[in-house]
Computed example of a mutant assay.
Amino acid sequence: MKSSPIRTATGLVLVALTAFSGLPAQAAQLVRVGAAHFPPYTIRPENGADTGLLPELVEALNALQKEYQFVLVPTSIPRRFGDLKEGRTDMAIFENPEWGWKDIPHTTVDMGLEDAEIFVAQREEGRQQDYFSDLKGKRLALYSGYHYEFANFNADPKFLADTFKATLTYSHDSNLLMVLRGRADIALVTRSYLFDYLKRNEKVADKLLVSQRIDQVYHHYSILRPAAPITGEAFGKLLQELRDNGQMLKIFEPYKIALVPVPQH
């Protein structure tokens, strides 16, 4: 029976005590991966649903080897820092060291993955790419808590509302709907999420104008706590194996998440 990567605390203990067949005296080391709602990477992990790119990556990591058992532990965008620092999780994936980790002891592993934040508007006759070049006077729909380059990474809600007429939500779907219904002029959306959204909502594809302008590029890293059961070097090797066997491309290419070279040290 295929096991779910999202488990209760009791399930985590059981897994830790369970030895793999063929290795009766040696249990796999449990590696707890923080799972915060960040579609399409992780989708409502607190509901126990194995959906999103993170569960797919965890499944591929577990299928690759028997030394480590990766499991997902639900957390949240604000809480993930404390969970890693206090040892409730061992690792955060699809992160960047610039996103608030500087005061938390950690090791980084370059995942060789890049995504981007792009602008989306309603398609109208005569509207071209230059519509995105100047944001002044335009009503923006933004994701609460995100740090945007156009705003100098200032995520303060009042600043964004006052300076950019911004409405902040916790849903890319809601922001795109605001654009489609004329309640916002421009939404900023993660490129991978937009491609997933358009696959689920093919009828609106011709109603949206997608910018060639990129607000920022997300270069993804894994963040490991110093006492994690797996070292950064060992995890980097597992990612390289998934890259070599084609699993990384299979998981991420459909979402237009680019595989880029990882610097060799």
Rank of each mutant, 00 (worst) to 15 (best):
T190M: 09
N96G: 10
N201Y: 10
L17V: 03
T167W: 10
R88D: 09
A60N: 07
G246D: 09
A227C: 03
A36P: 13
P55T: 06
R80H: 13
V73R: 00
K66F: 03
K165V: 03
K2I: 05
E241W: 04
F150S: 01
D173P: 02
T42V: 09
E202Q: 09
A258K: 14
L140D: 05
A228I: 01
A92Y: 07
D134S: 06
Y218L: 14
E86I: 01
P254R: 11
E114M: 08
G232Q: 05
L64H: 11
Q264T: 12
F20I: 02
R200E: 13
L23Q: 13
L177F: 11
L14F: 12
P254F: 14
L57D: 10
M248E: 04
F38Y: 15
F252A: 01
E202S: 13
G182S: 08
K237R: 15
Q122L: 07
L208S: 13
Q29T: 05
Q26D: 08
T10G: 05
E125I: 07
M1H: 14
I223E: 11
T108F: 03
G82M: 12
V210F: 06
S3Q: 14
A9P: 06
T51W: 05
V260Y: 11
R79W: 08
L61G: 00
K199T: 10
T231R: 12
K250F: 11
H172T: 06
F164M: 05
N96Y: 07
A228D: 04
L72C: 02
T51D: 14
V260W: 11
S133W: 09
V71W: 10
L194G: 06
L242E: 01
E233V: 04
Q212H: 13
R213K: 15
N152L: 08
K237M: 06
L72N: 02
P105C: 06
L140Y: 06
G232K: 04
A16W: 07
Q264E: 15
Y41K: 00
M248Y: 05
V13T: 13
D110C: 04
R88K: 12
A63F: 10
G145V: 03
G48P: 06
D173M: 04
D50E: 15
D115G: 03
S76T: 09
L84K: 02
G52S: 10
A49E: 14
A161D: 06
R80F: 11
P74S: 10
E46G: 04
L61P: 00
G34H: 08
A19E: 11
Y68S: 13
L23F: 12
G87H: 12
F81G: 00
